[in-house]
Design a protein around this nucleic acid. Structure first.
Lengths: 273, 273
DNA sequence: CTAATAGTGTCTATTAGACAGTATGTT
DNA sequence: AACATACTGTCTAATAGACACTATTAG
């Protein structure tokens, strides 16, 4: 017969939490940034690449595959704190923009046991990172080819190329929500190809209605550089006057100039808070 | 000394998942709908209310407080499947629009033990529900008063009023992200006042750039009714011609009319997929 | 007739897209 | 001088906001 409790204290004293089989939770970080490619020509601007930080696994499971920086959430640790801790361990960075992305909770994500993963979207200005990466971590440039049916994503760190296809499956046309089926993935561990796809989609989307990109910019930047970052994330060219109109009230002019570029010098701007 | 594994199979055979202390996960559902209030006047339209389903707890902890329908995620059950199961148990509904909202993972959310909660936003047309609610469940009309600093939320099911204040704490102006500190809550269990606040904010936001409201509409509706739903969620009046322009290509006219309303009859429309 | 909503026409203000032009540095 | 980018002016198209007007029903 079930015992009748008279108070919450009494109930909690008796409570045995082992009645349910518990599970493990990880916090995984999608750290995005923008990096400079080289110049092919002294006059031209640096090409910008959208890039993501990955870590090579040195233990089983998925030994020698790449994955997102991540780690288990401690029993006495908030998820957000775990995310901060993991990012700091991998990059020595803190005080970085970070938001929760999505929680992936299918069974068999991890061959060891049932693991839930809460992923976080983090953005940095790459100038803040110098020689502080952990040994197995590496930045990959992200190339995205998207049409109505599929997204072809290629990640390239100079030595190694990772590519896969995310096939869009429309969940709801009305809300433009997609699920993705990952194909041709052989270098990314777990379901991280799916996590990366989800993160890139969210970022592309947010760029249009938030000021999120400024978290990837250094303190001083030219409008041309800012425009390049928008272009590389959105995957399309923007018209100069329209772009300047839109960001006009988000930035403020400084009295600094960027010179020595083989063409007319450009005014340096700063994000206006 | 650490054992060196030659293959993933060998590694997995030895793997003991009890090295980490595990935690519990629940799926909690925010089921929103729109309900009709009465008419004060034979000529007037039914007043519309935005409403949410809550359940009264009959066991500890938080006995006799209200909470969101929810339940533990099984060890062999995907989070999404758990969400569907929970919703069905409470309402007998399935095939309902549902999207993941947010994962709440602070410590001490639950006095029993460490529990993580993944919340889901679900929307129904209330006409689909008739006498199928579980005994402890009840619909509450939602009233929202929002300014730059606070959101005052009142939930009312006719018998009981639940109200609390969510104080906005700006995380990032650039991305317009807020965290909320809940004050004056004494009738909602766990951190569910925070979950509800987060859900309402998300919904208010999504109404502007998705077709999400159609999930709360019956198959046939007048444009006046549709506009009322937008107004009640957004908490402001809209201008007729502007509203009609915006939704013009999302709906299609039918040859049905709604009559008997004490004023000019109105054409019934249908969502255009 | 009256109150109440249904539905439309139109003027204006704002925003977005497109293109052409001028400006100014380095080599 | 030539190239490449910086930066601006302006015309046009599309979208949003506001208001006024007509239409139609039950009672």
């Amino acid at each position: 017969m079930e015992k009748i409790y008279k108070s919450e204290e009494e109930f909690l004293k008796d409570y045995n939490s082992d009645d349910f089989e518990k599970l493990s939770l990880t916090a995984d970080i999608l750290l995005f940034s923008v990096s400079d490619g080289g110049k092919d020509n002294y006059r031209k601007l640096n090409e910008k690449y959208f890039s993501i930080l990955l870590v090579k696994r040195d233990t089983y499971p998925f030994k020698d595959k790449w994955c997102l920086p991540g780690g288990f959430v401690g029993i006495d640790e908030a998820i957000d704190d775990a995310a901060v801790r993991v990012l700091r361990a991998e990059t020595n960075l803190h005080n970085i923009y970070m938001e929760q992305l999505y929680t992936f909770g299918n069974v068999n994500r991890d061959p060891r046991m049932r693991v839930i993963s809460t992923s976080f979207l983090a953005l940095v200005d790459k100038n803040k990172l110098r020689d502080t990466l952990s040994e197995n971590a590496s930045w990959f440039n992200v190339m995205i080819l998207e049409d109505e049916k599929e997204i072809h994503i290629t990640l390239d760190n100079g030595n190694e190329k990772i590519s896969f296809i995310a096939v869009k499956k429309l969940i709801s046309k009305s809300t433009e929500r997609y699920d993705y089926e990952i194909k041709n993935n052989d270098k990314l561990a777990f379901d991280h190809a799916l996590v990366i796809t989800t993160g890139i989609s969210r970022l592309k989307n947010k760029v249009n209605y938030t000021d999120i990109v400024f978290h990837m910019m250094p303190e001083y930047f030219t409008l041309g550089e800012l425009q390049q970052v928008y272009e590389v994330i959105l995957g399309k060219k923007l018209l100069d006057p329209a772009f300047r109109r839109i960001i006009a009230d988000k930035v403020e002019k400084t009295n600094k100039m960027k010179t020595g570029e083989g063409h007319r010098p450009s005014v340096l701007f700063r994000y206006k808070k």
